[in-house]
């Protein structure tokens, strides 16, 4: 009969201890995660301990980044300015002075936007890089609504009072109303409303003067003035126009129509008018 004994060798003491050690959860976890981690970290640290290698690594990374940034897909070839008049477009191109082509990574759209928006004639701007390498600058231009006379010259203002551009001569924009005086630009909406209301006396109108940064004077031809109050200027002007239409107030020799106190309108007559009045009184 054959000897059939199952081989059942006893483990050596070391093998037995090793198995028990490996079955210890903490040890096993340390071996499974800690050892590879330590090897990788140690190897990396050793490799990076050389300054030349570190520099080469940084350079390589920079180079790679540059290569990606300069791929044609990311390059901005041209700039398109839309919604701006030619001088404004030229000005925008000048202040941006982009050296095209440029990578869209190097392009700070926010900065471009801020630069363009800081220009006086620009009311709003949208900047975007369009597919195809186009830097699209959509400009909304300010519309001049009024001319302000300042000590340094004439300035065009838009409807909100924001300066648009300097003006060389009043005749260039004779169609726009004129304001003057300190702080006139801050009250442009009111001035425009006053101009609109003064439509019936438009031929007489020369302009509006801001007085003491609080109220308006309507300056008419011949140096005549209508002094408007601080509050309710529009109503006072309507009142003066109504007076004019009813009694031809402004065709008479009146230097100043003082409506600053709406309950006590005052007229200052011109020299001729005063004499006529005195004459009439003495005749009576």
């Amino acid at each position: 009969m054959r000897q059939v004994t199952r081989r059942d060798p006893a483990p050596s003491r070391i093998a037995y201890r090793m198995q028990r050690l490996l079955l210890t959860p903490l040890f096993w976890r340390a071996l499974l995660w800690g050892l590879p981690l330590a090897l990788v970290l140690g190897g990396t640290g050793l490799w990076l301990s050389d300054a030349d290698r570190r520099q080469a690594l940084v350079e390589g990374a920079t180079e790679l980044r540059r290569q990606i940034e300069e791929r044609p897909e990311f390059m901005v070839q041209i700039m398109a300015v839309e919604g701006a008049s030619d001088p404004l477009a030229a000005e925008i191109r000048e202040i941006l002075h982009l050296r095209l082509p440029v990578s869209s990574f190097d392009l700070d759209l926010q900065e471009v936007r801020d630069l363009v928006a800081a220009l006086d004639p620009v009311a709003g701007v949208r900047v975007a890089v369009r597919p195809g390498g186009v830097l699209q600058v959509d400009v909304e231009e300010r519309v001049p609504a009024i001319v302000q006379r300042r000590s340094e010259g004439l300035v065009l203002l838009d409807a909100t009072g924001h300066p648009v551009a300097p003006l060389a001569a009043r005749e260039d924009r004779a169609d726009l109303p004129l304001v003057a005086g300190t702080g006139a630009s801050r009250a442009v909406p009111e001035a425009l409303a006053l101009y609109a209301a003064a439509e019936p006396i438009a031929p007489e109108m020369r302009g509006l003067v801001r007085v003491g940064e609080r109220r308006w004077d309507v300056v008419l031809s011949g140096g005549r003035r209508i002094l408007l109050p601080e509050a309710g200027a529009l109503r006072a002007l309507d009142q003066a126009i109504a007076l004019h239409q009813a009694q031809d107030l402004l065709t008479r020799d009146v230097d100043v129509v003082d409506l600053r106190n709406p309950r006590r309108p005052t007229l200052r007559l011109g020299r001729h008018g005063t004499e006529q009045l005195l004459q009439a009184r003495s005749d009576r």
Binding site: P9, A10, Y16, Q19, T24
Partner: peptide, 18 residues
């Protein structure tokens, strides 16, 4: 002792527990 070692090792291996 060897027999105990054998049997404990085999049982631990089967259980996966020390």
């Amino acid at each position: 002792e060897r027999a105990i070692r054998t049997v404990v090792q085999a049982a631990q291996k089967m259980a996966g527990i020390r």
